[in-house]
Simulated scan of single mutants.
Amino acid sequence: MIIIYGIRDRLNPIKAKLSDVIQSCMTDILTLPASKRAHRIVPLDKEDFYFPADRSDSYTVIEINMMEGRKPDTKKALIKELFNRIETELGISPVDIEITIKEQPAHCWGFRGMTGDEAQDLKYRVNV
């Protein structure tokens, strides 16, 4: 699951494209199926979004929640590809993007009535 935070006036006009860009990176780097999109977009009023003074109103925070198992190089490649594609396709400078990857053990995930470590039918690999 991915949660995206930004200033409402900046985030709303680009949210569909930003979601597409993020999902394409997830598909290309993590080999997730394109249909495996779980994005939550949280547009905030400017007075509710505090961020460093040297960032612009385009400042965007992307939290990626996933089951643990990806290699450090894979996660680094994902972060770098997100910076690259967001800048190229949306014109947001990497200085205005903050990305965090939060990993939890598979047994801490619950979906389709089971925990992640019980799922035997995932259409993607976690250990990449």
Rank of each mutant, 00 (worst) to 15 (best):
S93K: 15
K46A: 15
T100N: 07
R10G: 05
A106Q: 12
D121T: 12
A53T: 02
Y5E: 11
D57G: 14
T31H: 14
T60S: 02
F111S: 05
Y50V: 14
N12P: 01
F83L: 04
L11C: 06
Q23C: 09
I3S: 07
F111G: 01
A38H: 08
D28S: 11
E118W: 10
Q23R: 07
I79R: 06
P94A: 00
R70D: 03
C108V: 06
D28N: 09
N12I: 15
G116D: 04
D48Y: 15
R112Q: 08
L18T: 12
D117G: 00
G91Q: 05
V128N: 10
I64T: 08
L122D: 05
V95F: 05
R70N: 02
P13E: 12
N127C: 14
E98W: 15
Y124S: 10
K80P: 00
T115G: 03
G69W: 03
N12K: 12
A106H: 09
G91Y: 04
A77F: 07
N84Q: 12
Q120C: 14
Y50C: 14
F111E: 05
D28Q: 07
D9I: 13
K123Y: 09
E87D: 11
V128M: 05
L18F: 15
F111M: 07
A38C: 08
R70I: 02
I3H: 08
T74K: 14
T100E: 05
